[in-house]
Simulated scan of single mutants.
Amino acid sequence: MNAALRQTLSPARHPCGGLRVLIEGEPCVLRCSGALWVINHRTLIAADLHLEKGSAFAARGQMLPPYDSSATLDRLEAEIEALQPASVVLLGDSFHDAASIGRMAPGDCERLGRLAKGRTWIWLEGNHDIAALAGSVDALPGEVIETMTLGSLRLIHEPQGGTQPGEIAGHLHPAARIVAYRRSVRRPCFVTDGRRAVLPAFGAFTGGLDVRDAAIAGLFTEAPLAAALGRDRVHALSWEMLR
Rank of each mutant, 00 (worst) to 15 (best):
A197N: 02
D232G: 05
D213Q: 09
L219Y: 01
L209P: 01
T206D: 12
E222K: 10
F220V: 10
G230C: 02
V211L: 09
A215K: 06
G208E: 03
P200E: 03
Y181G: 15
V185C: 05
A215E: 06
L219A: 03
L199V: 02
V211Q: 01
F202L: 10
R187D: 09
G230I: 00
L219G: 00
R182W: 15
H235G: 10
L209M: 09
S184L: 14
A215Q: 11
D210W: 02
A214T: 08
A226E: 00
A226P: 02
I216W: 01
G230A: 02
T192V: 09
T206I: 13
G218E: 01
L225W: 06
S184P: 11
G203C: 07
R212Y: 09
F220P: 04
R233K: 15
T192M: 12
D193C: 14
D232W: 06
V211W: 04
V191D: 08
R233G: 10
R195G: 13
A217L: 09
A204H: 07
V211T: 05
D213V: 04
F205C: 10
D213I: 08
P200M: 10
P224E: 01
R233L: 13
I216R: 00
F220Y: 11
T206V: 15
V234E: 08
A217P: 03
G230P: 00
I216E: 01
S184K: 10
R196F: 14
D213S: 14
P200R: 04
L209F: 05
G218F: 00
A236E: 08
V211A: 12
A214M: 11
A228H: 03
A228W: 00
A217D: 07
F205V: 13
C189V: 04
A214D: 08
A215L: 10
C189K: 01
I216G: 03
A236V: 09
H235L: 15
A228S: 12
A236W: 13
T192L: 11
C189I: 03
A227E: 09
A227P: 04
D193W: 09
E222Q: 10
D210I: 03
F220Q: 13
A214G: 04
H235C: 14
L225V: 07
A226K: 00
R212A: 15
H235F: 14
R183V: 13
T221Q: 14
Y181F: 13
V211S: 01
S184I: 15
A197E: 02
P188W: 00
V198L: 11
F205H: 13
E222C: 05
T192D: 06
L229G: 09
E222Y: 06
A201W: 02
A228I: 07
A204E: 07
F205P: 03
T192G: 11
R195S: 12
I216F: 06
V185S: 01
F205S: 14
V185T: 09
V234T: 07
T221E: 14
G207S: 05
L225C: 11
R186H: 06
G203M: 06
R186G: 13
A197V: 08
A197Y: 02
A204D: 13
F220H: 07
V198I: 13
A197C: 08
D193I: 07
E222G: 08
R182H: 15
G194T: 02
R187T: 12
A201C: 03
L219C: 06
R233Y: 12
V198Y: 01
F220T: 13
G194S: 04
D193L: 10
L209T: 11
S184A: 15
E222T: 11
A236K: 09
I216L: 10
L199Y: 01
A197M: 09
V185F: 05
